[in-house]
């Protein structure tokens, strides 16, 4: 890469997914993040019960993310050839895990606000 600027990176990602899908995914990620922040502010507390379910879902998110990336790229786990490959895989798994946890927590909070939970 000659110049790895923000605009170059955006251009590259737009080409990978297509402009429409890339910005749709960005929007979706932004909406989920905003919803997450919204429920945190609204509830003014982290519900440990919901957090527990979010944590339980993390390994599922990690596995789903890794399987998705491998399937999309004609690859298998046996192709990890060096430390950098392991880091990339772990990074993908981590992103999947965190994404899933946020999604699960936010989903629970939106569907079952604290008022309902205490009933």
């Amino acid at each position: 890469m000659k110049e790895l600027t923000l605009t170059t990176m955006i251009a590259v990602f737009e080409e990978i997914f297509g402009s429409g899908l890339f910005w749709a995914m960005m929007l979706l990620a932004a909406v989920i993040t905003v919803a997450y922040v919204y429920v945190l502010i609204r509830d003014r507390a982290v519900s440990m019960r919901k957090f527990l379910w979010a944590q339980v879902s993390m390994p599922v998110g990690a596995v789903v993310a890794v399987v998705f990336v491998l399937a999309q790229t004609n690859s298998a786990l046996r192709h990890t050839g060096g430390p950098v490959d392991v880091f990339v895989l772990l990074g993908v798994a981590l992103l999947g895990a965190v994404g899933m946890a946020i999604l699960v927590y936010t989903g629970q909070s939106l569907l079952r606000p604290p008022a309902q939970e205490t009933k």
């Binding site: 890469m1 000659k2 110049e3 605009t7 170059t8 251009a11 590259v12 990602f13 737009e14 080409e15 990978i16 999309q72 790229t73 004609n74 690859s75 192709h79 990890t80 050839g81 060096g82 950098v84 490959d85 990339v88 895989l89």
Partner: peptide
């Protein structure tokens, strides 16, 4: 022989190439 280098060829290269065609990379 690395998986990440394969990813560059398989996923990122065409994107970089297209960005280059458009004069953006």
């Amino acid at each position: 022989e690395l998986w990440i280098s394969w990813l560059m060829k398989e996923v990122a290269l065409k994107a970089t190439y297209n960005a280059m065609l458009r004069g953006k990379a």
